[in-house]
Amino acid sequence: MARWWEVPPPSRASYLAGVDPELLAVDLDPLPDGAPAVVQFHPTAGTVGDPVDVLLGELDRAALALFPAWLPGAEHLEGPQGYGVPAVRALAAEAASRSRTFGPFLADLAERALRGRASGRLRFPAEVRAAGLARVVADAYGRDGTALLVHVPTGLGPASQASLTHAAEWLAHCGRLTVWLAGAPLDTVDRIRPVPLILPPHLTGLAAQAQHLDPPTGTEPVPVFTFPPLSGQPRHDSAAESTLERALAPHEWARDRRWNHTYDGPLLGLTYRLDLCWPADGVVVEVDGPEHRQPLRFADDRQRDVHLQLHGHDVLRFTNDQVLADPGAVVEKLRQLLHQRRSVKERIAHAEH
């Protein structure tokens, strides 16, 4: 049986009829084997603007953040000093020769990434940028292609619906992106093909659970654009995760931590992405952004926590605001929990001998 992301045609724009995009977002975290690299766009009613310009800018930002994952060999370069710039441009030219990516664009992108510069992306036509950025994002995750999941908001007028669907079609055509629109109906647009999906039971069951939960409220907005984290690193688009990593780095007791680690749960064959964990100690830390207040994500979090706890893990959750406001307090709580877990393990080992 085909998995749901294999049903819509690739390199096309499709409307996923009757599907909550947040449910799909839960199923795409972590990225399943065989799925494309999926980035997500959360426009809001009244602020759609020019989606093509917004999305090209966001894709560019993601590509710079994901460097050097998409350029083999660049991980050995220490910066733009010395031969760094000629070397990274040579690596980009070599990579472009093995793909359909325009060589000068890739070399320019690689140099900007090495220099840590966000400017300069308008040097190339939009069509070149779209195709190049889509390929770079896919390469960063080792995937065959890139898909864009658009969370269609309620309240879009005819002009905004037309602008959003035009952007979806343009990106699919020029960038060879697979575009999925899901959410509020596009009732004034008839040129986007609707695609019905049959979702797996674990997703439909999660939707049923979410109806009976009351997630917390907050004022922090959901980011307009998100992309998956790379295993072994804090999220590049999360100030909270980066802040926590800097706070943990000086401490010897915090060694052996893993960021965005994929955990294959023994229960029901479920796979989880853990924001931060110490696998040997059974300690899991989740850093929750505003998307975790969404009912489906909130229900999934509760289910994950129960499964992890049933298999011997301690799970601590902190909001972005908590980490950013007082990272030292968060670090101290982690130190105490790790010390407690390790002391218990030592006592058990001593008793067995």
Rank of each mutant, 00 (worst) to 15 (best):
T44P: 00
G79N: 09
G84D: 07
G282D: 11
L338V: 13
R12G: 02
Q322E: 15
D256Q: 15
A140T: 07
E252A: 14
W259I: 03
T217Y: 05
L23V: 14
D139N: 07
G145M: 07
P196R: 10
S343P: 03
E332R: 13
Q233R: 15
G232Y: 12
L203T: 05
H311Q: 02
Q294T: 09
A240I: 00
T178D: 05
P125D: 10
Q340Y: 15
E169A: 05
R3V: 14
G142N: 07
A69Q: 15
P201D: 13
Y272G: 03
R304N: 04
S14T: 08
I192D: 01
L268Q: 15
S343N: 13
F318M: 11
E169R: 12
L267G: 11
P80Y: 08
A254Q: 06
T154D: 13
R143T: 04
A329P: 01
L64C: 02
F124M: 04
R341A: 15
E252W: 06
P68Q: 14
P194V: 01
Q40P: 06
Q309G: 13
L338K: 14
L106C: 08
L133T: 00
E286I: 02
A349F: 11
V315K: 04
L199Y: 06
T47D: 15
A45G: 01
A90W: 12
V284T: 13
R297N: 10
A17P: 01
A65F: 08
Q322H: 09
D187L: 05
D301R: 14
D214P: 06
L149K: 01
V7F: 09
A159P: 03
P201G: 01
R317D: 02
L31Y: 13
